[in-house]
Each structure stands twice: as C-alpha cells, then as structure tokens.
Nucleic acid binder design. Structure first.
Length: 354
DNA sequence: AATACGGGGTT
DNA sequence: AACCCAGTATT
C-alpha cells in the first residue's frame, strides 16, 4: 500500500471527527444501499428524515421487493431523481429472484444492478462487505484534485478514472469502508467546495499540493455549466368543495409517473383558459387567476400561470385512467405530487379542501 | 462526451 | 442567481 502513513493519519482524523449519521449505526448491506441511493446528489440533511421513514415502512430487501409503486414513490416524495427508487425496487426484485434475497458482495456484481454505478457499488462493497475499493464521489474527487493539484476537468470520466486509480493504491486494506467515509467527511466538513477550505484542520494539509502551493481555490477545475431552458405552462386547480383533479404524468421523462395538477404548455389568458376547459368537457362555475409560480430544475425552469377552477360535482365525474379526483387525505397519503407544484398545493383552493 | 434527471441549502 | 450535493442512465 502506497503512503500508508497518510492513510493512518486520515483514519485517525476520522476516528476523532467523523460525523454521526443514522446509516452508520448498523451498516447492514440494505441500510448502506438505501443510504447511498438516497445520498446521490442529495444532501445529508435532506436524507435523514426520509431514511428513517423509509426504513420504518420497508425495513428490508424483501419488503422493498414486495412493495407497490405507489408506496415506494410516496416514501421518496421530495427527494427528487425518482428513477433512483424505481431502479432500487427493480434491483430488490432481482436480488430476491436471482440471489435468494442476499445482496451481492463484490463491486463487480453490484454494479450490474439497476441504479448502482461505480461509486455506489464501491461504497456498498467497502462499507458493508469490507472490500478495498475506492468509492469516488464528488468529495473524493475534490480532495484528490487539491491533493494532487490536478488541472484536469473534474467532470470528465477520464479524470474520475485517474482519481479511482490513485485511491485504489492507497485505500486501507483493513478499514476500506472507513477510508472511503473518512474522505467523504473530509470533503463535506473540511475540504469544502466553496469558500476557504479549513486546511488547519485537515490531516492531509502537509501532503496536499494545492495547500503547499497556496492554491487551494484553483482546484478542482470545474467546467462551465450548460444554460437552463425556460418553459411556460398553465396549471389548473380544478376542484369542488372536497376533491381536486390530478393528472398522472407519462412514464418517461421529467417527473415520470408522478401526479400533477392538469395543465398545458404556454400561457393562457382567463378567457382562453375557460375555452380550453370547456373543450375538455368541464363546465367551470368560477375561475380565478392565481399568483404566478416558478420552479427551477437542474436543466429546465418552469414558469407557471395558475387558475383556481371551481367545478361542481367533480368527484362524480367519469375520468380517464390517468386522471383522479383526490381528497385532502388522498393528497397527503396516496398521490405523490412533486415539489414543483408546491405553490399550488399551498393555494387557498387546496387548503380549503374538506 | 453531453445531456436528462429534483430538490433544496449556501453563497 | 449561480453553485453544489455520498451519481446513474441514456443518447
């Protein structure tokens, strides 16, 4: 093992400074797996509550494999990147059917499961099964870029390979999971992405090229981001006194399969909105413009115009399969409505639902 | 190699 | 408003 002294310094730092996190209490393969999937592009604080609630409802692989889509999607509500949980469910079914319910133990096998890439496979293999494979995430990448003063584009796949090879030669053979988690904690609490990294508290400051050169902020080298497109939409809160109309999105693309308030592309004036609703067989008795709402995704921004539409006898109406009349309880307990519609969920029309 | 895919906290 | 986060799959 290369640079054993540095590895020991890192592990000592970890023993003293590691974060206390729920998924570190009892790192079973399922616990580690679930936490790693939830943590993909998602902050620790956002995961804590979802993690606990998810585990209460679906405590093991078998429970997840047997769960309905409604159930696991609802448990994922608010976390985003919903394909993560669809893939995890698929993988759970595969593990039940092909592996006798036992999680594969090597990174090579794990990476073949849906939703598990190089990073997650290595994280599970090292943390749950003690295999010496580096789990290179954004933290390990940033620490590596500074430690080696790498001028490579941090996002490029070839750069990730370099970092992986670097850590593979140095990872602790006795405590591989702790080695990986130590670097994650170091990146999250000391070797911060923005602002001044706290090099005084870093166990690797004396072997870090960027720090020794006083150039911490020159690394990592991050490419410019693609610009975001803007989409204008009109959203209808169609309701009577007890129910509101929901539409299930298609099974591909953004927010696939989730429930939304029905709407259409573009901005409709009140009169064209009334016409639009009538063309779709609805007879609004009252219509009222709502304050505009905006929702920003990574790659697209929605600018939404909303109308509060009172439609008598909504719950008695025959509806196509991808529509539903939801009660307040349904909204809270059954249908997964993504955060993009939070402004409308908070509208008076919804709040006054019986 | 680039883009799609969520949501929210930080700066 | 831009940046970032315990990334993966698809194009």
């Amino acid at each position: 093992m290369k640079d054993q002294k540095e590895t020991e310094q890192l592990l000592s730092w970890y023993d003293a400074r590691r974060r206390i996190l729920p998924w570190r209490e009892e790192p079973t393969p399922y616990h580690v797996w679930l936490s790693e999937i939830m943590l993909q592009q998602t902050r620790v604080e956002a995961v804590r509550e979802h993690y606990a609630r998810f585990l209460r409802e679906l405590p093991d692989i078998h429970a997840l494999a047997s769960a309905d889509e409604d159930c696991y999607l609802k448990l994922w509500e608010g976390l985003g990147y919903y394909s993560r949980i669809r893939n995890m469910h698929k993988a759970a079914v595969e593990i039940e059917e092909r592996c006798g319910g036992e999680m594969p133990k090597t990174a090579e096998e794990l990476v073949r499961l849906p939703g598990i890439g190089e990073y997650t496979a290595a994280a599970i293999a090292s943390i749950a099964f003690g295999q010496p494979v580096p789990s290179v995430d954004g933290n390990l990448l940033r620490v590596w870029a500074r430690k080696t003063a790498s001028a490579d584009n941090i996002k490029a796949p070839a750069t990730v390979k370099s970092a992986r090879a670097y850590y593979a030669e140095r990872i602790s053979r006795t405590r591989p999971g702790d080695y990986n988690q130590a670097l994650m904690d170091l990146g999250a609490t000391v070797c911060l992405p923005k602002g001044q990294p706290d090099c005084d508290r870093c166990p690797w400051s004396r072997c870090c090229s960027a720090h020794l050169d006083g150039r911490e902020l020159d690394f990592p080298v991050v490419p410019a981001k693609a610009s975001r497109r803007v989409e204008k939409r009109t959203v209808f809160i169609i309701h009577d006194s007890s129910h509101v109309l929901l539409h299930r999105r298609g099974d591909k693309g953004l927010l696939a399969g989730l429930w939304e308030f029905p709407g259409t592309e573009g901005v409709l004036t009140k009169s064209s909105a009334v016409q639009f609703l009538q063309e779709h067989g609805l007879k609004p008795t009252e219509i009222r413009k709502l304050p505009p709402a905006k929702h920003v995704f990574s790659h697209v921004e929605w600018r939404m115009t909303g109308y509060d539409v009172f439609a008598d006898g909504l719950s008695a109406l025959p509806l196509p399969e991808d529509y539903a009349a939801a009660s307040r309880t349904d909204l809270e307990e059954i249908y997964t409505v993504p955060s993009a519609f939070a402004a409308f969920l908070n509208s008076e029309a919804i709040r006054s639902l019986l």
